[in-house]
Design a protein around this nucleic acid. Sequence first.
DNA 1: AATGAATGAGGATTCATTCAT
DNA 2: GATGAATGAATCCTCATTCAT
Lengths: 223, 223, 223, 223
Amino acid sequence: MLRIPRPVTKVKQSPITARKAPAQARSRRLVSDILEAAARVLAREGSRRFTTERVAEEAGVSVGSLYQYFASKEALLFRLQTDEWQDTWAILDEISRDTRLVPLERLRKVVIVFFRSEQQEAALRVALDDSGALFRDAPEARAFTALTRQRMRDFFKELLPGVPADKQEFAADVVLTAMAATAEKVTVQGLDRRTVDAWAKANAEMYCTYLEALLRLAPSRRR
Amino acid sequence: MLRIPRPVTKVKQSPITARKAPAQARSRRLVSDILEAAARVLAREGSRRFTTERVAEEAGVSVGSLYQYFASKEALLFRLQTDEWQDTWAILDEISRDTRLVPLERLRKVVIVFFRSEQQEAALRVALDDSGALFRDAPEARAFTALTRQRMRDFFKELLPGVPADKQEFAADVVLTAMAATAEKVTVQGLDRRTVDAWAKANAEMYCTYLEALLRLAPSRRR
Amino acid sequence: MLRIPRPVTKVKQSPITARKAPAQARSRRLVSDILEAAARVLAREGSRRFTTERVAEEAGVSVGSLYQYFASKEALLFRLQTDEWQDTWAILDEISRDTRLVPLERLRKVVIVFFRSEQQEAALRVALDDSGALFRDAPEARAFTALTRQRMRDFFKELLPGVPADKQEFAADVVLTAMAATAEKVTVQGLDRRTVDAWAKANAEMYCTYLEALLRLAPSRRR
Amino acid sequence: MLRIPRPVTKVKQSPITARKAPAQARSRRLVSDILEAAARVLAREGSRRFTTERVAEEAGVSVGSLYQYFASKEALLFRLQTDEWQDTWAILDEISRDTRLVPLERLRKVVIVFFRSEQQEAALRVALDDSGALFRDAPEARAFTALTRQRMRDFFKELLPGVPADKQEFAADVVLTAMAATAEKVTVQGLDRRTVDAWAKANAEMYCTYLEALLRLAPSRRR
DNA sequence: AATGAATGAGGATTCATTCAT
DNA sequence: GATGAATGAATCCTCATTCAT
């Protein structure tokens, strides 16, 4: 979900990226073990009980080892967050480029898939958000958000031909933010798949209607 | 903002309402002093550093006094949250009943006012959300949410005449959730008033377009 | 029950007797109200939750008033203890002087009555003991114990005629200590009256057998 | 001393056994250091001032370390108690099986040794009892008590041949309870060894006299 | 590289006692 | 005399992080 970073009073200065690039395969394995364990602990115990000790135990390593690969608890959480974003947006990016569908159909599909993806990761996300105040503002997070935002704006150029660039961009922001925010709020409620799909469809409908209205207002040199 | 409660791992059972009704004026004053101090601490230090000790110090009272009026840290946070909700929704409720405007105009106004209100309280809200996991599921919170939801559904009956009741309700949920979620995400960025207004207008536009489309599909004995 | 004071490292120096002699009837009434409330709180809530606040509330007075009559929480507890002792030993003293019964029968009755009395006050006593470390060693407690001990030694002179005074006294101590200690341990278990009576009888039997054996060994120039 | 559990208002459910089995020698050392420190603090400061902080400081470790080995203050206290019980009863059990002595002689010896053992641990025991309300009812405590009780009943079968089983058991309970309760009360007074021995002898005498009387009443198909 | 024991600051909450009204 | 609000030291316990082995 498109997370919009926000200003916070105090910004931690310590690096929250990985302490060391896992050069060996063994290290890479260890890192992913820890990340998976962390995800499990977060989902199972909640952010309140998400402690380095518990994560290490779940991963079958010592706390010391955990700190060998993650500079801090915060860094671990950040990595978890980032990984989740990457997975989700890779899929959406792909759909948005699928030329076999007309643009509005692609948007509909993006919305549906996004809601579903959010649903699956809801438990993790909730816990993540509870600890989220810690790194919402890391530069890495900003960079990632900027990237996805750019990609989606490109998609909206296709969706709104003939519409001035600034309006295109704003529409993209409006729709994507609505989608991300709504999906987050909705999936967090633990609804079943059918209900989530209904929400997704209604939202997709709303966005499409809106974009069509925008198109209608455009200088329409559209043929 | 319409907050949708969500399931959380552990639900506290102890009451989170105020420990003692502030009968005397002095007590009332103290309670509001503490609440204001709490809001300041939350905004300034963030939820991580929001401690009873700090709040008491900021309010210029002892921890003991704080606990005389709030049964727990959680209760204090809850009170802060509730007060904010109440203020916001009282205004929206009023607008939604203002018969001098046609329904869709009222919706537009509701959206604008809501975004502005959210903007003003953004700092507090952020911190509040960070601590939110603690009482999102308190019965009192659910009760309040249920009430506002009902009021808004009544409003949507006016907005969507001729539309089946279940569709009315779903549309209300979809639009309000989008509004609440989006306003939250947007205002958190610290944008200036003009920009926030632009977001609000675009969103209002989107909702209106959507509702009009729904109306068009309705059995329409509304000539 | 015969409480044997014991040495403790640190002895508090503050007076634990009542702060002020209740001159007026009103005061006397207040003191007994507080004492009764204290007994109820102790029995109902346990020593852990026995707080001045709770006692004051139960008595329907303010903490301030409580402190007007009892110098400290400790003093209140001490008074409770003392009152209980007095009641119990007044009865036993009376029985031990009842010349309508032969001495050994009186002992039997003393034992039975004592066990029953202990049973009735078991709940209070448990809670009292939990807080007991506080004043086991107050001079007032020692004085009281000394008095009752003397009375009972007098009784044992009748029980063990012809036995040397020092042996009489020692026997008194041995039997009374066994009785007090055993009754305390037994009644604390919450047994029903029949069972407690059985224990009392068995103990009375044991003491009588023992005293008879001592008598048999005595120089017996009696008649 | 045979401690008879009693009902208490609140029963904690969390496990009070050691958090982690001290596998390495170092750990074992630490555990015993803490236990010794705890015993010292308890004896020196009393239960009121027996805090985790103080124990840790006395042991020369941090509170954190203390909690590494004991799940809670309660667990630490419980361990202290248990260790004391175990030591005492192991000795008594051995004596009661010593076939080189006739049964009544063994009982006499049991009583003497018990009084002496209680005397040595009196200071600790006092403090322990003051805090005892906390875990008197732990299942582990009940289990231990049940075990020792059974062992002693077996001994009484030898002491009271020809006496019906139920009477044997009751006599065992009566005598052992009297012994435990009396020894506790007596040794707590800080008497010298000779005096304690005198009490022990007198009590042993009383129990023997009582048991002999019971034997005399038995169906006596003996011989 | 890995371990995991040790640290100790930090946090929520309670309660005996005082004292201004 | 009575009140009860205010105080704040004291308590138990957690957990991110370090570092000797």
